[in-house]
């Protein structure tokens, strides 16, 4: 208890920074659930592919050792690459794993199985990525990219830790600032997009009542594609933040984060954008405080106990369920 109180801000900001990553991934779960009533379990793999995209692009560009403005440019390129690839993978997922089922009016359970299957396929494809190159004998030349596929791949970027300013006793670093800052910017932009733009209105309309929306001239398929692209791009941004904080990615890196982000989405009220954000931050901070009070290996116990308690009193999550109905 003393430990938590005397290092309160360090634990809070540490929790918020990782909570921001949960929140960005949770957005993908919540958007798709809002529109399709489908839990897209393969979303964690969308995140993982984005993280590899950033690693590979920066490797190809020779980003290692860059400093100053070059470093900033590479950071932006990393974000762009991760977001683009994650969005593309999410879109491909929709096209291959979900749309054919939707066209045949399959029950939701079937789509769920398809999601779990797609998750395994995407994860194992990454874990076995050296194999196709071996058939062509190209694996030696590409060893930096496909060698040791089950091992961790580091972000080829040296981001020095710079201490910027104090928040009470906690010395905030540039990485904290990049992660929290870009997460907040991205969330505000997304929120405004869904609330104010024409396409955002389409998303809300389909979430509220898909048939009525179709009658009013909303192209449902287009809206669904859009939600997958947006959710994927957010997961891509989260992937780059994850790389900045953790430094490495792996073929199974998405699994743990996927579980946590899904939890965050449920905690905030699945289907609700602002709920996903709040859920992510609450989960991150709860884990951090739990670690401080009981030790790091108890943090999941603390976080999930909190989840159960909150859902007992608010079964639809902190901010309620619907993407369409949510005020905000």
């Amino acid at each position: 208890m003393d430990l938590l109180l005397s290092n309160f801000w360090a634990y809070t900001i540490g929790g918020l920074a990782f909570g921001a990553i949960y929140a960005l991934i949770a957005l993908g779960y919540t958007l798709v659930y809002g529109v399709l009533r489908l839990i897209n379990f393969a979303h964690s793999e969308v995140f993982m592919w984005g993280s590899f995209a950033a690693v590979w692009v920066l490797l190809a560009l020779g980003a290692k050792g860059a400093t100053g403005l070059g470093l900033v440019a590479f950071l932006i390129i990393g974000f762009a690459a991760a977001m683009a690839v994650s969005a593309a993978v999410a879109l491909g997922l929709e096209f291959v794993a979900y749309r054919p089922l939707r066209k045949r009016n399959s029950p939701p359970l079937i789509a769920l199985i398809s999601a779990i299957g797609a998750s395994y396929v995407l994860s194992e494809a990454m874990g076995l990525r050296d194999k196709p190159f071996k058939w062509f004998g190209a694996d030696d030349n590409l060893a930096d990219y496909v060698g040791r596929p089950r091992e961790a791949s580091p972000l080829p970027l040296d981001v020095p830790t710079v201490r910027l300013f104090y928040i009470f006793d906690y010395h905030v670093s540039n990485i904290d600032l990049i992660v929290l800052g870009s997460a907040i910017v991205m969330m505000v932009v997304l929120d405004q997009f869904v609330q104010r733009s024409r396409l955002g209105r389409g998303i809300r309309a389909v979430a509220q009542d898909a048939e009525a929306a179709a009658l009013m001239g909303v192209n449902r398929d287009r809206v669904i594609r859009l939600t997958f692209v947006i959710g994927g791009a957010m997961a891509g941004a989260a992937a780059m933040m994850y790389l900045l904080k953790i430094g490495v990615t792996r073929y199974n890196a998405g699994f743990l984060l996927g579980v946590k982000a899904f939890t965050a989405a449920v905690l905030g009220g699945i289907g609700n954008l602002r709920g996903a954000l709040l859920g992510g931050f609450v989960l991150g901070v709860a884990e951090s405080y739990g670690s401080a009070l009981f030790g790091s290996n108890w943090k999941d116990v603390v976080a999930f106990t909190l989840l159960v308690v909150i859902l007992l009193f608010r079964p639809t999550g902190l901010l309620g369920e619907s993407l369409g109905k949510a005020r905000a």
Binding site: L3, S6, N7, A10, Y11, G14, G15, A17, F18, Y242, K245, I246, N252, A253, F255, L256, L257, E287, S288, S291, A292, G295, S296, N297, K299, D300
Partner: peptide, 23 residues
């Protein structure tokens, strides 16, 4: 001081451990 963390693949964020170690 001591801190037990979770096993491989079950933990990515070690910031609480870092804070405790510094303190």
């Amino acid at each position: 001081a001591t801190d037990q963390t979770a096993a491989d693949g079950k933990q990515d964020d070690f910031s609480p451990t870092v804070t405790k170690a510094k303190a």
